[in-house]
Amino acid sequence: MEREIINRKISAFYFSATGTTKKITEKLALEISAGAGQNSWEIIDFTLPEARKKQYSFTEDDIVVVGVPVIAGRVPNVLLKFLNTVKGNKATAVAIVMYGNRNYDDALKELWDILDEDGFNVLCGCAFIGEHSFSDTLAMNRPDEEDMNTAADFAAKIIKIINEEPKINAVNEYKVIEKVYRDYYKPKDREGNPVDFRKITPKTGDSCTDCKICAEVCPMGSIDYDNVSTLNGICIKCCACIKKCPVHAKYFDDENFVKHKIELEEENEARKLPEFFLIM
């Protein structure tokens, strides 16, 4: 067998504002490392702005598990410039997208393309489900134990693929044929008109204790540290500030946002399962 996984550097490389993508990306990296009998693997978390100012370069002997969340059915557009600076140098990549139980649309296809253009050898792709950023009930507490067990199963397949063992059964074969993606998913108002969610920003309630956690976790660095009720930059609706506020002081009250949140919860209640895609 050629290029066995043993003694190859393994990295978890991810953006994870609320921690769901982190859980799965790190789990896969951990399981791949353990399956290879290795004691260590690297974490590269590029969620916060400072981490995205660095240049990341890998080598042909690296295995990189790359995880990003799905926003509006695509790779978050605020990450595109950064991701295009990453140097794959023929490293083996596992592409992971994390979505909130609605649909990942073309996000996995897009991430696959990005990594391919960065010079990675994209081995396979995975779509996992995490608690939706807008909601605390939609896909609540996912990824859960069942998801983590599925990630371990996927990691076992990945190890076998890397070691070139035959007859690996994937859920689906997945191959990017052309770089054409559907447009970003657009919620609609009560009249059926598309709503531009980019203009919607979180509010800060009277229960705020000025602990600064929201400013520290904002992946865009947009929340003013001296006045956390002020936004100095864009909001990508990751809801890190809302989910990590210890006193629940951050919230959205925009009518269209609330309407869309309720629709998501009502229309996507059925549990969706992780998917594994492989190019043979």
Rank of each mutant, 00 (worst) to 15 (best):
E2Y: 02
E2R: 05
I6M: 03
F15V: 14
T18A: 04
T20E: 01
K23Y: 00
K23D: 04
L28A: 03
E31T: 11
I32T: 13
D45G: 12
D45Q: 11
P49T: 12
P49E: 02
A51R: 13
R52K: 13
K54C: 00
K54Y: 01
S57M: 03
F58Q: 06
F58L: 04
E60R: 12
I63P: 08
G67W: 00
P69Y: 08
V70F: 02
R74C: 00
V75C: 03
P76A: 05
P76C: 06
K81W: 00
A91C: 05
Y99I: 11
G100V: 12
G100S: 06
Y104K: 11
D105T: 14
D106P: 08
G119L: 02
C126K: 01
D144G: 11
D144Q: 07
N149L: 09
T150Y: 07
A151S: 13
I162A: 01
A170E: 09
V180W: 00
Y184C: 05
D189R: 13
D189Q: 10
R190E: 10
I200R: 07
I200K: 08
D206P: 13
C208P: 15
D210Y: 08
D210I: 10
I213G: 02
C214V: 13
V217L: 08
Y225G: 04
D226W: 09
Y251L: 03
D254A: 11
V258N: 05
V258W: 02
E266G: 06
E267F: 07
E269V: 15
P274M: 06
E275A: 09
F276S: 14
F277I: 09
F277E: 01
L278A: 03
